[in-house]
Design a protein around this nucleic acid. Structure first.
Lengths: 345, 345
DNA sequence: TAGAGCCTGGACAACGTTGTCAAAGGCGGC
DNA sequence: GCCGCCTTTGACAACGTTGTCCAGGCTCTA
């Protein structure tokens, strides 16, 4: 038989509210709020009664209501290309750390390099009223964010600049890095060098191609357009393209790989070849040291940290004009980029 | 001079609400709500006026308020160990995909293997009123979640089981996988095999150790406790431990590495050794094929997908008793695990 | 032409929290 | 013993949305 005189117990599916806690503790609503938020002006005895009621009911403050009332959500959104990409994972983590240091939670999602999905995600985050937005853009037009930015959502672009709007951005030196990598191959005697990269609508891809062309031009070397491959980075496609540039009457003697996904496939294809082919890849890889792969390394964690810090600077009120920060890359020579051209090739 | 007859314009920092939209369109509040949510009962002409007002003001529905009213947030929280760990990144992505298919957003965070941080994150997600929670536990006591689960937050544990509460879990067959890997080394002639793994309070670590002991026992082989190393997986520590088990009068001839972080360090250490030492690692690695590393592979994406699907089944009302799902592992022989013991060793 | 019924639109309360403000109670000083 | 001040507490509105319910105007039929 039910004891009707008993205090209310937690029921399945029912969330106790501050009102319930107040009733059980025999105090007013606001007093509960004060205890929950550690505000002063509550006697130890009252506080104890409230805390007992909280524990007894299994109460947890509803942050949705709190957000509604306060206007700040203490959360930031991160739109990146692929959560599973080993290049973006450390970036993601670095952003999370900075957010944590500022007491904010992180919501994130993958655009899968699809501009529509990027927009969908970014706007969904805005609807949740994230305080700030970090975006690794897939699209080239970000005017859809203008009302959001005007309404006060701080926005920082990472890895690639914003399109058609003026906003903070933190980038790696794609052009400079690729130029250095290709110059490295040239310095080791290569004259015919392939560039296998991502789709040209992606800013970093076209910048890296520009670095390739610059290095070739600076060395006075012609570029045969058949050496250049820009397209999806799915293994099958890259495999076909690497095979292609290595075939024909005058095959290339070296390959510059435009990003980590291209590099891993290129390494596999080159390993199957009878003759060694030089390779430099953009982005470092785990275990690349053991495989002797020469790369242009970028510090993804630093990219994420720098961007997140800029975001929180904005949230704390910084109002200077949008700023573009470019972080340097670093050539890491491990062997594959130092192979000379095959004699007679 | 300001044109006071003009309709209200978006002001910096001010968010238009449905009320503002209604005023500008000259309709009632609820009509705006109907248009925004695609509810029927609005004439095309009224709808057009409302849409114009929405665009003109840059209105976006405040989902915090919506959540408060509706009770569901259409978001799930994922607590994992390290967003940057290559093993968890695909899991993260898989969860995101499933969430997306169900129209939910993903909030996530790294516990850094710290039980307190796990709890802090999980409860923060609960305060945000996520609909469901996916947890890769760091701690061994999850009773702190009881009130949350009672209040209706669906919870599924991933990769490791829940501690002291009865809840859904999706795991890999750690014990079976390790047993198979060690048996594989034994089959190739090894008698003295080291186990280098993570801290024993981590469930998967102790299960894998159990697999190791089982395989050794089944082969009738003794285990010298100096061959077993359980501790932090920071490179320096693993390096020291691998060096240790390979030294002494009767060094081991093979190493079983308890997870991906141990494996990468072990590979580096073994590469520096004058004599080859056999190695099998738990978890697959990118480029492991090129390095010829034999591994026990688990399908992290499948782990995440399975867990997320179970979560959404619960959210859609499934009420069976909590279920533990164990996914199989797979031995991938690539060379390092098939090396025979050094003759005379 | 009147009445019935349908379709569109709006007024109002509620979700759970926090900020404002005022009341009650205790205590010290004169 | 009374006044005034400070401390503790609570009542109430508001945040922006959605659900409920009702009103008004229209069409269609008898």
């Amino acid at each position: 038989m039910a004891d009707t005189s008993r205090s209310p117990q937690p029921r399945y599916g029912a969330r106790p509210t501050m009102k319930d806690v107040a009733a059980r503790a025999g105090v007013g609503l606001k007093t509960v709020s004060r205890v929950v938020n550690g505000e002063p002006g509550v006697t130890p005895d009252t506080e104890r009664r409230v805390r007992e009621a909280i524990t007894g009911l299994g109460f947890r403050r509803n942050d949705s209501a709190r957000v509604l009332r306060k206007g700040r959500t203490a959360s930031v959104g991160l739109v990146l290309e692929d959560l599973a990409d080993p290049f973006y994972a450390p970036l993601n983590r670095a952003v999370e750390e900075v957010a944590r240091d500022h007491g904010a939670l992180l919501i994130n999602g993958s655009s899968a390099e699809d501009p529509e999905r990027e927009q969908e995600l970014a706007l969904a985050f805005c609807a949740r009223r994230v305080d700030g937005l970090l975006i690794i853009p897939a699209g080239r037009d970000h005017r859809y964010l203008e009302p959001e930015i005007a309404a006060g959502i701080a926005t920082v672009f990472v890895d690639r600049p914003a399109g058609l709007i003026d906003a903070d951005a933190v980038l790696s030196d794609s052009m400079g890095g690729a130029r250095e990598g290709v110059a490295h191959l040239i310095a080791h005697g290569h004259r015919r060098i392939a560039f296998v990269g991502d789709q040209p609508r992606i800013h970093t891809a076209s910048e890296r191609l520009r670095g390739y062309r610059t290095a070739m031009a600076e060395a006075g070397l012609p570029v045969d357009e058949s050496w250049v491959s820009l397209g999806p980075t799915a293994p099958e496609h890259v495999r076909a393209e690497v095979d292609r540039v290595l075939s024909g009457p005058e095959p290339v003697t070296a390959v510059f790989a435009g990003n980590n996904r291209v590099t891993v496939t290129a390494v596999r294809v080159l390993a199957e070849r009878p003759h060694p082919v030089a390779l430099v890849g953009f982005d470092d890889l785990e275990l690349a040291d053991l495989l002797g792969i020469t790369v242009i390394a970028q510090d993804a964690a630093r990219l994420g940290r720098t961007a997140a810090e800029q975001l929180f600077r904005r949230l704390e009120g910084a109002t200077e004009a949008p700023r573009q920060t470019v972080l340097p890359t670093r050539l890491v020579a491990r062997g594959s980029g130092e192979l000379p051209p095959r004699p007679g090739a």
